[in-house]
Design a protein around this nucleic acid. Sequence first.
DNA 1: AATGAATGAGGTTTCATTCAT
DNA 2: GATGAATGAAACCTCATTCAT
Lengths: 200, 200, 200, 200
Amino acid sequence: MSDLKLKKKEHILDIAAKEFADKGYDNSNINEIATLSGIGKGSIYLYFKTKKDLYLATMEKVVEKINESSEEIETNDGPLLEKLKMVIESLFKLEEESLPYIILWSRYQFQNHPDFPDEVFPIFEKLKQPLCDIIEEGVKKKIFYTSHPTESAYLILSMVVLLLPSIQPKPFLGELNSDEKIEYILNFIKNGLTYCKDQE
Amino acid sequence: MSDLKLKKKEHILDIAAKEFADKGYDNSNINEIATLSGIGKGSIYLYFKTKKDLYLATMEKVVEKINESSEEIETNDGPLLEKLKMVIESLFKLEEESLPYIILWSRYQFQNHPDFPDEVFPIFEKLKQPLCDIIEEGVKKKIFYTSHPTESAYLILSMVVLLLPSIQPKPFLGELNSDEKIEYILNFIKNGLTYCKDQE
Amino acid sequence: MSDLKLKKKEHILDIAAKEFADKGYDNSNINEIATLSGIGKGSIYLYFKTKKDLYLATMEKVVEKINESSEEIETNDGPLLEKLKMVIESLFKLEEESLPYIILWSRYQFQNHPDFPDEVFPIFEKLKQPLCDIIEEGVKKKIFYTSHPTESAYLILSMVVLLLPSIQPKPFLGELNSDEKIEYILNFIKNGLTYCKDQE
Amino acid sequence: MSDLKLKKKEHILDIAAKEFADKGYDNSNINEIATLSGIGKGSIYLYFKTKKDLYLATMEKVVEKINESSEEIETNDGPLLEKLKMVIESLFKLEEESLPYIILWSRYQFQNHPDFPDEVFPIFEKLKQPLCDIIEEGVKKKIFYTSHPTESAYLILSMVVLLLPSIQPKPFLGELNSDEKIEYILNFIKNGLTYCKDQE
DNA sequence: AATGAATGAGGTTTCATTCAT
DNA sequence: GATGAATGAAACCTCATTCAT
């Protein structure tokens, strides 16, 4: 595929991601995606065989984007809490740049019945989970304490996602800025995971 | 509306809730809901003006169910950690009895763009959040420590929901039984919220 | 299925048969078939799952119609040439009553690549071929002579079909009326099949 | 048009004929014809104004091919039955060399509603019918007897076409080789057309 | 000259909703 | 009251044709 074609494909993907993130798969409309992409209805099909294919391609890109943003963390060798902070920050940063993709991801994470699970699950198996590694390492090094590191990592991830500004449409959450949120999450985690005896 | 009619309406709602929970709004089919309800397709419209109306009615029932299950907790006067445990247990219990409703609720909680937000948000404003009260009380009594009680309550709620057996289709979580999960969540919360000084 | 529904289904089939016979499968239009049937586009799908299904149903009816028309012949016990005449006459008669069906049949017979061969071949296996029986009997009784009775039957059938008034749109054929044609075919067959030694 | 261009045009025609013969007009695809022809999709339109034009051009070539193959017969002066045999043989031979064209021709002959009849009928008016001449001559010379020479010629032609190996997809016909078929047809014709009095 | 990316008309099919029975 | 046959808007997708390069 030529460079130009690849660029257009990416452009369509970005538009489609936004549509899917906004309205979900069923309520998104190929015709509208085409129009918003600045191309004709039929042209979508030059790049993606079906609407479902287009959707799955956006899902691939979700994984790609998130994996990219965790790359830096893996190679870093600082203290664990620092790495933890980087994970959270990278997600907040990613949100600013690639909102639709992170929305799609959160939908996948927290929607018990994703569209096309048979095709989507394998895609998400390639998703890197740096949090797991960090927490497992922390447990080994006796910096963290948790009887179920994987579950803890999943919960922490959820927390972060739930506090991403765009993911909380509920009137229910207070107005903290990003830094305050990151601080808050880190504190919650630190307490939740670190050794701590005296209670109530 | 006669008693019989009310009963039928509730029956339809239960069937519809299951369909909506299984397949989502768009992929649910009025005809199928009618058939499963044991009535004719046209008869649905004697009880609900449109499919959307039916959907909103199930959402109302979601709130109703969850509020019912928290009623007991509010009137209880035991220690706060006990009440916390009750909240979690009541959700696990509700899941067993009213799975579709709790699935619908979790979808609403974690899907940033619910179907018909304009109508759905007001419905969920009536949702009681006993967790908030408990945590706020705990903070006042200096049993819990958190700078943002509302956020904390929301996060804890999320944790619980995310660990409900039917809500986690991901292969990613370990195999804990309900009691172990409740225990685990409580520990995480206790650590995350209670006074705790020495770290790393 | 209720009686009324069956009647409507037959009505749609008749309209569809005419369309398919006139334009072929691809150029026929569900919307138009519906309109001509006096019903809405979507209503076709109450009776037939897909356009292909509708087509196959017309093919079934083709076989049905032709088999009906040969029933009388099978039970008849007259002389073989009389039976031969009946076969031909029944086809000419069928043409008057059920033109589209006989056109569809001729399309199938002489179109080497029918639409949906995998489904259509089995349907036509149920087609009765009284000609074969008649000719085979004639060969046994030494009334007819042919080294290949099946091929001969097929050829005779083809002749008949090709001389059906509606099957010859070619300007190329002379203008004979039906009786003359039947007479002519019979003569051709008699000569072609019966014992005859002296030639050229 | 340059020589090279003419050659390419013929090449495209051959490919198109194969496609049209295999799949019919509607199911053939300009893009595929182009690819198989080794040229770009758009280039087809340098040679043929529309898909319909391409189709009509293949039909012209059908007539051309068949006329070519009958040329030899016309100029030959042997006995009539010899000429008759040549007609049949030439068709069997043509089939081996130009299968798609002969398939297209048989479709035209036996499909009462060809695509684009208004344009196709005039094309086929140029088709030479040596059989007609032969039979008319035979009738005059009292070698053949038939009250309707044109019809007879048409029927004989049909027989031949129906027995062409590639034209009979029906499981219904026995397995004769080409020579046996030719022999069989000739016998049928001889009997069907020659003087013969005593019957049944 | 040759290409193939782009287009959009047109076709099939689904399904919420209506309404005559 | 209860029904389900009927409807038609709306969505996906194909493919002949155009046209800028």
